[in-house]
Each structure stands twice: as C-alpha cells, then as structure tokens.
C-alpha cells in the first residue's frame, strides 16, 4: 500500500541510534556520504559494509526495512552500472566487438571495477540515508535542520517557518498518497483509462485525478491554516521546543565511531594507497 513506502518512513522503536541528537545524525550522515566517495579499494568497501551492519544493529531496525529503500532505487543503480560498464574503455580488454568504424563495443576490467564500485557506493549511500530517516522522526529531523540553520536567522532567513513547512509536507505525504490512490480508483470505476494513447492524451487523462487532488489540497491547506491559527501559531517570537536538543555521551561515541571509520577510508586511500594490493596480492 501507499502508506508503506519505506523511504522517509520512521521506524518507531528506541535504540542507540534513535536516541542520538538529530543534528549529530545529520552531520555524521553528511560525513558518511562524503566519505564513501573517497573509497578506493574493495577492502574499504568491506569495512563500510561492516560499519553499516554495526550501525543497523545498534539502530534495531529490521534489515528488511532498510533493504526496501534500496530496492526502490535498484533500477537507477543498474542503469548507472551498465552505462559505466559500456563507456569506460581504459584498462585490460575483456571483450571487444567492432560495431561501426567509429565505435567499438568494448568491456574492460576498469569498466567492470568501476561499475561494481559505483553500484556499491550508491547502495551504501541509500542505506546511510535511509538509516537516518528510519531512526529519526521527521519532526526531530526538521528540529535538527532548524537548529543547524539557526545562524542564518541573522540574515533574516525565516528558519522556523521553513522548518514548519517541511514538517507539514512530511506529515501530508501519506495523506495525499492515500487520497491519490482513492481518486484513481473512483475514476477507474467510472471507466477512466490512464494508460492508453499518446503523451498528450495520457496527460489529459490524468486531469480527472489531478483536479480533484488540487481542489482537495487547497481545501486541506485552508482548514489547516485555521487549525494552526486556533492553536496560536505565531503567538510569540519566543517559541519554545518540547525537546531541547542536547548533546550526550551517545553523540560523542557515535561521532568518534564515524570519524574513526572515515579516517580509515582516507588513510587507506592516501596513506596506504589502496590496501587491496597488500591484502589480496595477485588479484589486483
């Protein structure tokens, strides 16, 4: 069902990772994502895998939920991998066939390695991003972003309003998806076909769904505005937060752990210049 889309969906439980400060989680996720682009060796990928498994274990989120978000981008990953496979032409040739005089179809060892590494990178990236969204409520995530953006208040950037907009958008995603699903069904029951004809006809055939959705979204926005006013939105400049974000011992441990991991990746790349040669001699 639409309600079960895993990406961006919080997995409610309590764990070491859940209880981290969202700001720390955001910064560490950014650090992790940057780091995986510096991975050079298969050994580092192995280390990353172990790192992610440890993080998932400490998050108490079922591996299946994490894999579900990976499944969502599998197509993209495969596409990128294939492109890489065909268009990298350096390195030892595995297979070669002349198609035309200006293009030779060629698969090389460099292409294979590039594809595998790109695939792993993308999968790890999505895994990392889904861990933060599975272990952090959208509200806490926006709290974290709001807090990190706070310095921008000096230049009159409406940090708080942006945070509320993000929170509401997240809140209404399942509601609107559900409504889309219902509207599609209602129009299908009236004989509407959504999958026939050319592009323009297709676009036109979506109107019976899009118009009711827009009408309804505006109605919802209108009612929500009243509901927010009734609950004293904008009552004071000194708005408070139920949860004061506070750094704790967990955040220190997590930071050290991720920093340790990142350090290893950089050391592997720039100091050992790729440990694969040492660990798997003969293969690489």
């Amino acid at each position: 069902m639409f309600k079960d889309i895993a990406f961006g969906q919080y997995y409610p439980t309590s764990s070491f990772v859940h209880n981290l400060d969202p700001r720390i989680k955001l910064l560490l996720t950014v650090l992790f994502i940057v780091t995986i682009f510096f991975i050079q060796t298969y050994f580092s990928f192995l280390v990353t895998l172990v790192f992610l498994i440890v993080v998932i274990l400490f998050s108490r989120v079922p591996v299946l939920s994490v894999l579900k978000s990976v499944k969502g981008i599998l197509f993209l990953v495969l596409f990128a991998a294939i492109i890489n496979l065909f268009f990298v032409s350096t390195g030892e040739v595995i297979y070669e066939k002349v198609i035309t005089d200006w293009w030779t179809f060629r698969i090389t060892w460099d292409g294979v390695h590039n594809s595998i590494k790109l695939t792993l990178r993308l999968i790890f990236l999505i895994t990392g991003a889904s861990i933060i969204s599975l272990t952090t409520t959208p509200m806490r995530l926006t709290d974290g972003i709001e807090s990190l953006l706070k310095p921008l208040k000096v230049i009159k950037f409406p940090v708080h309003d942006i945070a509320i907009i993000m929170s509401i958008a997240l809140r209404f995603i399942p509601t609107l998806l559900d409504e889309t699903h219902k509207t599609i069904n209602a129009q299908k029951a009236r004989g509407a076909a959504f999958d026939t004809g050319g592009l323009i006809k297709k676009a036109k055939s979506m109107l019976p769904v899009l118009i009711p959705l827009f009408v309804s979204a505006f109605r919802r926005a209108d009612e929500l505005a009243f509901a927010m006013d009734a609950r004293c939105y904008n009552a004071t400049e000194k708005r408070t937060k139920m949860r004061k974000l506070k750094l704790g011992w967990r955040d220190l441990i997590a930071t050290l752990f991720v920093a340790g991991y990142a350090t290893f990746i950089f050391v592997d790349r720039y100091y050992f210049l790729g440990l694969d040669h040492v660990l798997f001699p003969g293969v690489f």
Binding site: N185, A186, A189, L207, P208
Partner: peptide, 30 residues
C-alpha cells in the same frame, strides 16, 4: 466495470469537470 457502479465514501471529492452536465457525462463517455 460498467455493470458495477461504485459510489465511494465522500464521492463529491471525485468531481472535476467545470459543469455538472460534463461531470455526469464522464462515465457514459468512457
């Protein structure tokens, strides 16, 4: 589909045409 007519909860939320006539004609047109 044409022999089972479905009136869902809050069916008014599926109205989309600019006149009542056109909206009622949507099913028969299909």
């Amino acid at each position: 589909r044409f022999s089972v007519g479905m009136v869902f909860q809050y069916p008014e939320y599926q109205l989309f045409e600019d006149t009542v006539e056109k909206d009622v004609a949507f099913g028969p047109k299909n």
